[in-house]
Amino acid sequence: MNDHLKLKDVLNSRVTSKVLADPIKPLPPYGLERSEVDEWLSSAGQAPFHHQAERSHKASLSSPVPWRMYKFDALNCRELLTYLNENTDAGKICNMLAASEAMVLATWTPDAANDDLSENILFEGTERNMEHVAAASAAVQNLLLLATEAGWRTYWSTGGVLRTPQIFNRYNISNSEILLGAIFIYPQDVGDAEIRKGKLCDARGNVSDWSRWVTN
Rank of each mutant, 00 (worst) to 15 (best):
S176Y: 03
M1P: 03
R34N: 13
V15R: 14
W213I: 10
C201W: 10
A106D: 00
A112T: 10
R34L: 13
I121P: 01
T88W: 06
N120S: 09
M96S: 11
P64G: 13
N12S: 15
K6C: 13
G125T: 02
K71Y: 09
F168Y: 14
N85T: 14
D116Q: 09
V133T: 11
A21R: 05
A203Y: 07
S63T: 14
A102N: 10
G191L: 04
S63P: 02
A139Q: 08
K197C: 00
Y30L: 05
A98I: 05
E124V: 05
W152Q: 02
N129H: 11
A74Q: 04
L117R: 15
L20V: 10
V19M: 04
Y30I: 03
K92S: 14
C201R: 15
I121E: 12
E36G: 03
D111F: 09
S13N: 14
D22F: 07
A74H: 04
L122V: 11
Q52E: 14
N169K: 07
I178M: 13
T107Q: 01
K58I: 08
L162S: 07
P110L: 04
W152A: 00
A74T: 05
I178C: 09
N206Q: 14
T164F: 02
R78S: 04
N87A: 06
G91T: 02
T148R: 10
R212V: 13
L117H: 05
P187Y: 02
L84Q: 07
R128Q: 05
D38E: 15
L180Y: 00
A98P: 03
E124S: 13
T154G: 03
K18G: 06
N142L: 05
T109Y: 00
S174D: 14
R153E: 06
W156C: 01
T88E: 12
R34P: 06
C94W: 01
N76C: 01
V161S: 06
A59W: 07
R68W: 00
E54G: 03
G151T: 09
L146S: 07
R34G: 12
D89P: 01
